[in-house]
Design a protein around this nucleic acid. Sequence first.
DNA 1: ACCTGAAATTGAAACGTTTCAGGCCGCTCG
DNA 2: CGAGCGGCCTGAAACGTTTCAATTTCAGGT
Lengths: 346, 346
Amino acid sequence: MTGAARVAGKVGIKEVARQAGVSVGTVSNVINNPDLVSDETRIRVRAAIERLGYVRSETARQLRAGQSRIVAMLVLDLANPFFAEVAKGAERALRDVGLGVMVCNSAGSPSEEADYLALFAEQRVRGVLVTPADGSGRTVETLRARGIPFVLVDRSLPEDQGCSVSVDDVLGGDMAVRHLIAAGHRRIAYVGGPMHLAQVRDRFTGGRNAVREAGLPDDVLTPLDSDRLDVAAGRDAGARLLGLADRPTAVFCANDLLALGVLQALFAAGVRVPHDIALVGYDDIEFAAAAAVPLTSVRQPAARIGRTAAELLLAETDETGPDAHAHAHRRIVLQPELVVRDSSRA
Amino acid sequence: MTGAARVAGKVGIKEVARQAGVSVGTVSNVINNPDLVSDETRIRVRAAIERLGYVRSETARQLRAGQSRIVAMLVLDLANPFFAEVAKGAERALRDVGLGVMVCNSAGSPSEEADYLALFAEQRVRGVLVTPADGSGRTVETLRARGIPFVLVDRSLPEDQGCSVSVDDVLGGDMAVRHLIAAGHRRIAYVGGPMHLAQVRDRFTGGRNAVREAGLPDDVLTPLDSDRLDVAAGRDAGARLLGLADRPTAVFCANDLLALGVLQALFAAGVRVPHDIALVGYDDIEFAAAAAVPLTSVRQPAARIGRTAAELLLAETDETGPDAHAHAHRRIVLQPELVVRDSSRA
DNA sequence: ACCTGAAATTGAAACGTTTCAGGCCGCTCG
DNA sequence: CGAGCGGCCTGAAACGTTTCAATTTCAGGT
């Protein structure tokens, strides 16, 4: 046992100073600028710190510094492996420079998102990585109004408004539907979550582009709404799909969770994939390849998105900090990639 | 636009007080005890707050209060849907009482875990929900030494040492292996992650119990080590499995991620599940049911674990706070449930 | 003996809150 | 009319740091 005679938070720098027979300023220097302190004193103070189990109060430190060492990350759905992967990428990059990461879950709800943004502002977080749950841009407005550095994740933004790292969702949707059309499908359903999410909208737009470029009428791709973006919602959508008058021959889902849910529903009803209905998902989460019928999906470089976003945020805070010389926001758009598997093969 | 003329953090309670023509104490009361302030003053102060875009500094507040309004949650693997679900359960319960949740990922590494525990101590978090990455109990020791309230998640602890919410892993392992033995299997491999994790050890112990109770020799269940607990590690293990001299007829995995990886490896090698090799996983994550061969798995009530842990933590902090009357730690052990699917059916 | 400069240390201000003892005012009660 | 009271408000202390100007100490140069 090394010590810890007192309870954390009970012993402050003052008590350490008293026991070591020095002033508080010196103790602070031992911790933050050891070079300024003589060897003898340094050793004595370190001993006192050890003996008392002193832990510096980051809270007090932050108060003085005006900003915290924590970056907040707000994602649409922690239970979605895609976001978990993005978070992991960001976390690694931020930990490397000694910043803590607070991962939070808006669950796609604008009101939960607003709650969290308020919390972040009160906490004076260093910055925020956020995938907006709100299509209206109110998220960005709120952050800018409060002067909190931020980077949009998986959603793009004009460069004069802020940094963003996204994947070209319109292109992704285009690739998916183009693939289905090439396979001969002419009745395709788009199973999408709430349309106020940009991702959901853009992927549909991309799909419609593909339809038009093929010289086909718009109604070749018809949306089938879904209120959430999880497996259960996918099962619901699958069931509704089967009740449709003109049953589609292919389904494009806004993400893999939905696609896996649809797959389960189709399977339960004895509908064969891809023979009766072809299926394409989005995100290419690890489980897509392991599904009952391996899932064709649009792959996004999840970890890279997270890492890149973290780097942009660091650049922004560094440059904004010292001598506020205008920071040039960057808008990074990564490319998706279609991974064809059994679920859409003839 | 409602205001926000200044940058967040720039305007404090003092400036608000000046503009509203009152003292700082009154502004504080408007925010925290509105009843103590006259209507007229309250309105005037509120207007000033709005106009200036004032946001209370939680940092300063915490400094005064001595503790923060944030609870930390440290899990083994955020990318594992089981933990994501646990986190979700805890988050909901804590948000309901106005506490923020900081979810962090130790990735099963004791050193990352130690880093995070140090961060939490400096942040003076209200409490910690943790699944230890370190089998030795050093995690618990560290937390207790620092006086940080904690609840162990998915890991049990004697009641005199602290609160814990776990699922009976020994029983779960027993159920899984008993099921395989009943189906006639006599060569069973246990694919487990690093043995320093209690979960991995206990599930194996349970399996061995089942073997013994069936009056069979211990080597019916042989461990096949794996350094991590993810899908890729499962694929590795699956490949090694196939090279074994006496190829087992069944495989029990320490979690579903491993099982899905094994499944992929077996499938790639043309080995049929369950015909050639039966497979049982653990956790019953949502994707287990949607796998190429629906996976038999030991289900754990994930969300409930999270919620229960959060409640215990709240009880502990509430009771410890006011007048330190000895808090009775609780040790809650939930029951697992075997869900039989195709991967282990004859 | 005196001055200089570097090295080591001190002491106090400042960060933005909350809390609390007290002050002031206008009423009501005796 | 004075005392007492309740409602409203003020001003300052305290929380635990960091930072910085000021002070002390000491060795070395003249």
